[in-house]
């Protein structure tokens, strides 16, 4: 699947496939509403039909990707934390 890149924003991809959905992805759909506005402006939230991680026995669904980072057993808290981390990572990179 092709993805829009180069938006300068942090890409957050929520998997809404069967396995992720039954393991709680439906809660993650509200992510947009739970983020403060200044963070919201810096993320690009999309869904995907399957990240193809569910076939892998080691990781546990539901899955969310924050940029290149895979979050397994994702919930709103862990996704927010990962976004924060990416944001501060960017800041550090800019400062260098």
């Amino acid at each position: 699947m092709k993805k829009e890149t180069g938006t300068g924003k942090i890409d957050v991809t929520i998997c809404t496939g069967t396995t992720c959905y039954v393991m709680g992805a439906s809660d993650l759909l509200t992510l947009e509403e739970t983020l403060p506005e200044k963070i919201l402006n810096r993320v690009n939230i999309t869904g995907t039909t399957c990240l193809n991680l569910c076939k892998n026995k080691e990781d546990k669904p539901p899955f969310v990707m924050v940029n290149e980072k895979i979050i397994s057993k994702a919930n709103l808290e862990s996704v927010k934390k990962a976004i924060q981390q990416e944001l501060s990572g960017e800041k550090n990179a800019n400062a260098e």
Binding site: K2, K3, I14, T16, L29, I45, T46, G47, T48
Partner: peptide, 8 residues
């Protein structure tokens, strides 16, 4: 060669 866009 078409994108899939999920209606979140």
């Amino acid at each position: 060669d078409e994108n899939i866009i999920t209606n979140l």
